[in-house]
Amino acid sequence: MYSVEWQKRGLPHAHILVWFIDKIRPEEIDSIISAEIPDPSTDQLLFDIVTTNMIHGPCGTLNSSSPCMADGKCTKNFPKDFTNDTVTNVDGYPIYRRRNPENGGQSFIKNIINTDIDIDNRWVVPYSPLLSKTYNAHINVEFCSSVKSIKYICKYVHKGSDMAVFRVENTNVNAPPVNKNDEITLYQIGRYISSNEAAWRIFGFPIHERDPAVVQLAIHLENGQRVFFTNETAIDRAINPPKTSLHF
């Protein structure tokens, strides 16, 4: 499932949600998603791509004017903490491995406002080495390890266009009344569409898609499903009921 949206400068980007048939085991995450700077001696191409596209900021005390700063703090919670191993089951998302330079992690020098800053794994945005080397672009990849995060992700993917809500009213007492509950009119006058998005829609390019479009969920009502068992399997069926699409 994906949707395409536009930033304020008109740059398009996509939010993509992928379900896997086979579950990803915790020990497999590091081979799919990385939050570390690659070793340039073994993969110079990936090192160049990551250091160019997948480094956050830096912000905070190193750059207080960074656009991610709000009330003196980074809204993306950077820099992250160092950790030697990937940890799952934390707020629906893993804590990715970020080794410090003394423990095998890489670092490089980045010039920020005419100042050379040592960048380490604490500033790396999680990425997929395969996708990064394929597209050579900023592609943030995250692993959703909890069903509790699915609702938020689906809402975020379909959060809709940016809004600029405003109203101009006539203060003349003799003016006709304004219907303040006209949601259709408020939506039309407040929707923010850049010229790039307008051209995208005029040419009929896809905005969103889901495949399959409809997913059938096995919803069982009370006393409304059949259970087959024998005298030998009755206890096992009661303790271990068959899994359905709504069973986690």
Rank of each mutant, 00 (worst) to 15 (best):
M54A: 09
D85G: 00
D71R: 13
F203R: 09
F205D: 10
Y93H: 05
A70L: 14
R98D: 09
Y127M: 01
E142G: 00
N240I: 02
Y192V: 15
C144R: 09
G204H: 13
P101H: 02
I202C: 02
N53E: 08
Y2F: 05
I153M: 15
E183K: 14
Y152N: 15
V87P: 00
V87E: 11
D43Y: 07
I113N: 14
P212K: 02
R226S: 02
S146D: 14
M163P: 00
V125N: 02
M1R: 11
G92K: 10
C59T: 11
I239Q: 15
Q44V: 13
D22C: 06
E5D: 08
S41V: 05
S107M: 03
V178L: 13
P177W: 06
R201V: 11
G10W: 09
H138L: 14
P40L: 04
V18R: 12
N111G: 01
T185D: 03
T244M: 03
G104I: 11
R9S: 13
P94T: 01
G224W: 02
G10R: 14
P101I: 04
K8L: 06
S128V: 08
S107C: 05
I95V: 13
I235C: 06
N100V: 00
K151S: 05
P38G: 03
K23F: 09
G190K: 02
E102D: 15
E183R: 08
V18A: 13
I113V: 00
I113E: 13
A199F: 11
F166L: 00
R99G: 07
L221E: 04
H138Q: 09
K159W: 07
K23T: 04
I219T: 05
L17T: 15
D91P: 00
G190L: 07
L131W: 02
L186E: 12
S34G: 10
D211T: 14
C74G: 04
R210L: 01
H138P: 10
I184D: 05
F228E: 15
T115E: 15
G10H: 12
S41L: 02
K243R: 04
T75N: 05
I119S: 09
T134W: 11
Q225I: 01
